[in-house]
Write a protein that binds this DNA or RNA. Structure first.
Length: 669
DNA sequence: TGCGGATCCCTTTTT
DNA sequence: GGGATCCGCA
């Protein structure tokens, strides 16, 4: 588990410190005046602008405790946050403050909340037999099938790749801008193909509907539609949820803001918390103007600013304030701290990529010798692949780490393969999963897969239809093995999820060994997946929904990362996945112009603003020590150019606020 | 029709 | 360095 030190440093107040004589929590004593005001705010709309490290989580936690303490029924409080982990953590802390009633507070991500509601009202949205959630990879696979059908009849032009198509589609859904305009504005090089793209888009919608698939965006779209078009449902929900709280409001998109508005009316007991300076999800349709517009949506909004920073020492805060100063943000804040002392952050120019990695390894070894535990250190980067070289050096140096963000465990081919076998039992009409399963069988290619799928469908008996369907090549030993698997899984008493997983593993093992040289590692991954399955008993649908909505966010790579015995590990994380967390010591690597900011964003002013906020988010994770490093000269394949300038965002930081160093392992002893 | 090999492309962040 | 695509062979 990627433990942030925040998890560790949160010490629930000792009863004697934090209680009034009558045993109630003494909020005034443990909160500053702005936090206190937010926590004790009564009814109506409330906007809390919470600067980095200003006790945002603390404020939400105490507010939950306070509402429950006042007698509000916990399940009528709805806490929407960015990750399920974040909301669980808040409820856990609230429980420590008050009691376990806080665990009954409703909460989760927008997507998981939507999933729950839509399952209850599936008949209202046209899916009386339910639906399955497809993740980004599934959605790309579906798009890819359609893409092949539509083909590109035009001479010389090629259609965008599946991933690009998926991004275009998601963008139009989440921003509400129509497809043509998205293409013209953001993908002008595909303008000539816009009619084909439009066609794929329409077919994608039809196919999803036929298969009862909802992709991530659909969860929000259908929830929105449900609330808008079924007033009785909206009213029921709005009456049920007396108090709404939304964390990280700066990262919501238009649909999410509308959902909040619909759920809140007419009481409008809605509290949103966020920081416009930390908005980093515009690429997925988030619009930080939501937070600016909140008071317009909810007239009479009380605005509270949390401006005292409890996280970072003054020298770090000086640097982060300088980093964000040039940003065109709307809610101005003046972050200050009473935590003086500490050294200025260090800016390190390394001789090259590997020198940068070696610097990190050397520095971390030094910190560890000084007694700092690895759990309290993180290395942050813009893109997942930026840590590859460092991962090798860390392994070589014997420093255990966990990597968060980027490619996920659940996205790797072998995990998807195993899950596809479970899915064909749960939803036998799922074409994607059938194709995936069938293509793994020897001698079966796309043509046969399609025929077999149609034949099974025609049997109308679920996955076991494969046993009776008449298939062309009469004998195929490999296919017979698949039939045996389906028989065995179907015969599983009660269909215990983990038992089915074990059957799949046994069947899949030879395929895995043939396909991958690194099968031992992949087998371990699957075993880990099976241990996750054990938590679900016989609830296969829940398991599959959770794998799509809340997959484990840690990427497994390398021996060190996979060893469960080692507790104290360094965290490697994308900046996006580090949001909301904090560590004693933070390293930001690849602060090199062209990498961070990425070369893709350099020509786009809005993207550059977002990159700047990312740098701000990264730097504000540090409590006591901050290192920013960049390799001095690197050849970049993508742009065919040499990158050598430090990140332009560093120009905003006066030279005397940082200590400047140069590192070349060849010149060191 | 399946499959392996060669070649040309682009390479971010996540629910 | 990986995916999409094309081509030739079984």
């Amino acid at each position: 588990m990627p433990l942030s030190s925040e998890t560790i440093s949160f010490v629930p107040e000792r009863a004697s410190d934090a209680r009034l004589p009558d045993g109630r929590i003494d909020y005034r004593k443990v909160l500053n005046s702005a936090q206190y005001e937010a926590v004790t705010f009564g009814a109506g709309p409330l906007l809390v602008i919470a600067g980095a490290g200003s006790g945002k989580t603390r404020t939400l936690t105490y507010r939950v405790a306070r509402l429950v303490e006042e007698g509000i029924t916990p399940s009528t409080i709805l806490l929407l946050s960015f990750t399920r982990k974040a909301s669980q953590e808040m409820l856990r802390r609230a429980s420590l403050l008050l009691d376990k009633r806080c665990q009954e507070v409703s909460g989760g991500t927008f997507h998981s909340f939507a999933n729950g509601i839509l399952r209850r009202f599936a008949n209202r949205i046209g899916f009386p037999q339910g639906f399955s959630i497809i993740d980004r990879a599934d959605s790309e696979d579906l798009i890819s099938l359609i893409r092949k059908e539509v083909g590109s009849a035009d001479e010389g032009h090629t259609l965008p790749r599946k991933a690009t198509l998926a991004s275009i589609f998601s963008r139009t859904v989440n921003t509400g801008i129509n497809l043509e305009d998205i293409i013209y504005e953001e993908y002008p090089h595909f303008s000539a193909q816009r009619e084909h793209i439009q066609q794929i888009w329409q077919l994608y919608g039809t196919r999803k509907h036929e298969h009862h698939f909802l992709d991530y965006d659909d969860l929000l779209v259908y929830l929105h539609r449900l609330l808008r078009e079924h007033e009785d449902v909206r009213e029921r929900l709005a009456l049920h949820y007396e108090y709404l709280m939304v964390d990280e409001y700066q990262d919501t998109n238009r649909i999410q803001a509308d959902i909040v508005t619909l759920l809140a009316a007419p009481r409008n007991n809605v509290m949103v918390v966020g920081d416009d300076a930390q908005s980093i999800y515009a690429f997925r349709g988030a619009n930080f103007k939501n937070i600016i517009d909140f008071p317009n949506r909810f007239p009479g909004t009380r605005i509270i600013k949390l401006e005292e920073n409890y996280r970072s020492l003054q020298p770090i805060l000086d640097v982060t304030n300088a980093l964000i100063a040039p940003a065109a943000e709307k809610y101005s804040k003046h972050l200050f701290t009473r935590r003086s002392g500490g050294k200025p952050p260090t800016l390190v120019a390394a001789a090259g990529e590997n020198a940068q990695s070696r610097f990190i390894v050397r520095e971390i070894a030094r910190l560890k010798n000084q007694g700092l535990s690895l759990q309290r250190i993180a290395v942050l980067f813009r893109a997942s692949f930026h840590s590859f070289d460092l991962e090798l050096e860390l392994s070589r140096g014997g420093i255990p780490f966990v990597k968060v963000g980027g490619f996920k465990f659940s996205e790797s081919a072998h995990i998807k393969d195993v899950i596809a076998h479970m899915k064909i039992l749960a939803s036998p009409r799922d074409r994607l999963s059938w194709y995936r399963v069938l293509l793994l069988v020897k001698k079966i290619g796309p043509q046969s897969a399609q025929r077999i799928f149609e034949a099974v469908l025609a049997e109308g008996k679920g996955a076991t239809g494969l046993l009776t369907a008449k298939l062309k090549p009469k004998s195929n030993p490999a296919l017979d093995r698949l039939k045996e698997l389906i028989t065995a899984m179907d015969a599983q008493p009660g269909h215990a999820v983990a038992q089915q997983g074990l059957l799949v593993l046994k069947y899949y093992l030879p395929i895995l060994q043939e396909h991958y040289d690194d099968h031992p590692r992949r087998i371990r991954d699957i075993e880990q997946l099976i241990s996750i399955m054990e938590r679900y008993d016989e609830r296969l649908d829940d398991f599959l929904a959770d794998m799509a909505l809340e997959p484990p966010n840690t990427a497994i790579s390398g021996e060190m990362a996979a060893d469960p015995v080692i507790e104290d590990r360094l965290t490697l994380s994308t900046i996006h996945s580090a949001k909301g967390l904090e560590w004693d010591t933070v390293f930001i690597i690849w602060a090199l112009d062209g990498r961070f900011p990425t070369y893709q964003s350099i020509e786009k002013p809005e993207s550059m603003e977002e990159e700047r906020r990312l740098m701000y988010v990264a730097a504000t994770r540090a409590q006591h020590q901050l290192f920013i490093t960049y390799p001095q000269e690197v050849f970049d394949r993508a742009t065919q150019s040499v990158l050598y300038e430090p990140s332009r965002f560093l120009e905003a930081v006066p030279a005397d606020l940082m200590e400047h160093r140069f590192f070349d392992p060849r010149n060191m002893s």
